[in-house]
Design a binder for these strands. Structure first.
Lengths: 176, 176
DNA sequence: GAGATATGTCAATAAGGCTGACTTAAAAGC
DNA sequence: GCTTTTAAGTCAGCCTTATTGACATATCTC
């Protein structure tokens, strides 16, 4: 690629201060691939969800509730980073249509512990399977060892102060 | 790990047909990491954009126009996968505020060729630099060889019929 | 009992998508 | 040259998902 570069070309030495990242050429490839990949990654679930008159917001709620039975409202808000009012609309719909169940806490009766119903788990799984299919297909074409690197990369894109939280969420199962 | 899995979940034996990916356990880790990574990846640009009263839609338009000077409306619609009407609203604002310029085609006078102004290129670059910073930070913590694997993975997530198109867009420069 | 906390709800607003219908200008086809 | 197709622009109305702000209720903590 750099075959035509004359040897003597003064190349400003790359500093890896990690703070002045904008000294580097923009990583257009990874920026754009991320955009296109995300666009298609959510497209399969979108199709299924529209059959139920649900949107992406419903998917996110159902996903995390299904994954973490007993999740409280506050915890869910913290994961999704949306307001109580935004959550409430979609959550209400998911409860009314029987995909999620809200149970009053026993230790703290102010809390609501959310659980997916059988129907809810089923839909969540169906959507996860679709996305897993896409992931599996993609992983199949590359070095199987790369999976850890990909996880590490994605984790590294997350805000540092949230990284531990996400790590617990994704890799550890809940104890609360 | 599966201790909390809903009871009714049948576990079919894993076949490696690559077609029926949903025989596999869901790739919850990559699914969730992708969600959290994307959430934070767009957060830095969002902050800057709001200073200009722009949103993500403006960012996407500005980005691709800046990257591919002379892009036509039809080509842009194909990249973004939104309707003409949706594009028009944000594009109009970007033109009115002097970030993008629309030039009537010479060969085909029906077409509009879009170009970022100096101001437009500047903002696009600023936003790309922010995202590049995040990417660089993340890449710094992993095997430098992994970058190719990550690109390949993201490319693999894209719809097969679009993959060549995206590849041209991302890795090749335009000749039109 | 006072105050803090977890949740729920009303109302108004905004961004960014969508569909459908229609116009204008210009190119292409015959 | 006339017709059809294509590229772009526009009007109107609607939906989803988010926001802010204000306030209500039940329950826990001190």
């Amino acid at each position: 690629m750099d075959a035509t570069l004359p040897d003597a070309m003064p190349v400003p030495h790359p500093r890896r201060d990690s703070a002045d990242a904008h000294a580097d050429a923009p990583a257009y490839d990874l920026i754009e691939l991320f955009f296109f990949a995300y666009r298609d990654f959510v497209s399969d679930p979108d199709r299924i969800l529209s059959e139920y008159n649900f949107g992406r917001a419903h998917h996110r709620v159902l996903h995390f509730v299904s994954r973490q039975p007993g999740l409280t409202i506050a915890e869910l808000l913290d994961i999704l980073r949306i307001t109580k009012q935004s959550l409430n609309r979609v959550l209400k719909e998911l409860i009314e249509t029987g995909f999620i169940e809200s149970r009053t806490g026993t230790a703290d009766r102010r809390q609501r512990h959310l659980h997916a119903t059988t129907q809810g788990h089923h839909l969540a799984r169906k959507l996860a399977d679709l996305q897993t299919g896409r992931i599996t297909q993609s992983l199949a074409s590359i070095d199987p060892k790369a999976k850890e690197a990909i996880s590490a990369y994605l984790l590294g894109l997350i805000d540092p102060d949230d990284r531990a939280h996400v790590q617990r969420l994704v890799f550890g199962r809940r104890e609360t």
